[in-house]
C-alpha cells in the first residue's frame, strides 16, 4: 500500500453530500462517475436532472469519504471541463431530501393501519392495489429509513429511493452563479479555511 493510502486509511469516513452544476452534454455523467471509481469510492447515491438554467444539469452525489478525500473529489470535479461549479453542502445548512416509494402488503383490513402509520411520517398514499398500498415520502434519509423500518413488518413488496437531492438554505445563490467559484475553494490565509486545524501540526 502506498504511504498516501496508508496515511488516509484511518481517517473517519462520513457521508458527504456534494452538489455539482454540470453542462448538459452526452458523457458528462460518465466523466463524473469515472472520478469516483478511480479511487474506489462507493457512491451512496447519485441524482441528476436538468435545471431551470439552459444547458445546465444539477447533480447531487453522496459518498462515504473522509475530509481529505472529499476535498480531493471536489477539486477533481472542478477539473472536469463540463463541471461548472461544485458545493460540498455537508457541513453547511442545507435541505437534503430524498423521495421514496414503498409498496407494502396490505389486505383491505390492514389498509387503515398502514395509512395511519404513513401519516405519522408525513407519507401519502399514491396507489391502492387489491393486496398492496404504495406510499410516497419526501424527507431526510433518516426519516425515510424510519418509515421503511416501520412498514417492514407488513411486508415490503417493492421499494425505490431516489437518493438525496440537496439545496443550501437561505438566500445565497448557488456557486454556479459565482463568477469565480474557485474562490471559495482557495484555502484562506492563517488557517481560516482549515476547520480541522491540519495545518497546525506542520509547524
Amino acid at each position: 500500500m502506498s504511504p498516501l493510502l496508508a496515511a488516509a486509511a484511518p481517517r473517519p469516513r462520513t457521508p458527504r453530500t456534494l452538489v455539482a452544476h454540470v453542462e448538459d452534454r452526452p458523457g458528462v455523467l460518465a466523466r463524473v462517475v469515472t472520478l469516483f471509481r478511480r479511487r474506489g469510492y462507493n457512491i451512496v447515491s447519485l441524482t441528476v436532472a436538468r435545471t431551470h438554467l439552459a444547458g445546465i444539469s444539477r447533480l447531487t452525489v453522496v459518498v462515504d469519504a473522509d475530509d481529505d478525500t472529499a476535498r480531493r473529489l471536489e477539486a477533481n470535479l472542478y477539473k472536469l471541463i463540463d463541471v461548472v461549479a461544485v458545493d460540498d453542502v455537508t457541513a453547511s445548512p442545507a435541505v437534503i431530501h430524498e423521495l421514496a416509494l414503498v409498496k407494502v402488503r396490505a389486505s383491505p383490513r390492514e389498509r387503515t393501519d398502514v395509512i395511519e402509520l404513513g401519516k405519522v411520517f408525513g407519507a401519502r398514499v399514491v396507489d391502492v392495489g387489491h393486496q398492496t398500498l404504495t406510499v410516497e415520502l419526501t424527507a431526510t434519509r433518516d426519516a425515510v429509513d424510519r418509515l421503511i423500518a416501520a412498514l417492514e413488518p407488513h411486508g415490503i413488496v417493492d421499494l425505490v429511493r431516489t437518493g438525496a437531492v440537496a439545496m443550501a438554505r437561505g438566500d445565497a445563490p448557488p456557486a454556479s452563479a459565482d463568477p469565480n467559484p474557485y474562490a471559495h475553494h482557495q484555502p484562506q490565509p492563517d488557517g481560516v479555511d482549515d476547520p480541522d486545524g491540519a495545518a497546525d501540526d506542520l509547524d
Binding site: 504511504p3 498516501l4 496515511a7 477539486a75 477533481n76 477539473k79 475553494h185 482557495q186 484555502p187 506542520l202
Partner: peptide, 29 residues
C-alpha cells in the same frame, strides 16, 4: 509523506487547484 520536510512551512504555487493539499498539506497555496 509523514516524515517529509518536517520542519518546513510550505508555499505551493500551481495552476491546478486539485494539486493543492493533494499529497502534502501546505501553508500557503
Amino acid at each position: 509523506l509523514e516524515k517529509y520536510a518536517p520542519h518546513a512551512r510550505k508555499i505551493h504555487v500551481d495552476i491546478d487547484p486539485s494539486e493543492i493539499h493533494k499529497n502534502v498539506r501546505v501553508d500557503l497555496p
